[in-house]
Amino acid sequence: MDIRVQEAPFDLGREASAFAARQTGMGAIVTFTGIVRDLGGTLDHMQIEHYPGMTEKALRAIAEDAHARWDLGGSLVIHRHGRLGPDDMIMMVATSSRHRKDAFEAAMFLMDYLKSRAPFWKKEVAADAEGWVAARDEDEDALRDWQR
């Protein structure tokens, strides 16, 4: 498990290649990347706040859960905070497994849980308005699906 919380950008290709190079005997690697969207066409930037200390612990606990549930070789979570512009990469996860199903499901699980259980908060800032992004009911529903 490799957990990184950082303000700096990351290089998706380099991180994916480095992750792949650390795996042995794995038949599948899945990566997911989250991008800042400008839904209304007015976004100037997004400000991501987090809870230093708890963030790393929460991400590690989520990754440990994923490793307990699926047959994983490795996992990587990178999540940025601070100021991000439209189309900037916010975060990425990578999972490896001997089988693609485990790699895909574990990546989905990591995404669903870090959306609602890792202490990050997004604020959207436009030229004349700003507001905190509200959590969505669907995000909680997704967690319930994993608990069945």
Binding site: Y51, L114, K115, S116, R117, A118, P119, F120, K122, A134
Partner: peptide
């Protein structure tokens, strides 16, 4: 002890 709104990571 920390207080905050529902989290919006990802």
């Amino acid at each position: 002890v920390a207080f905050f709104p529902p989290m919006t990571g990802g």
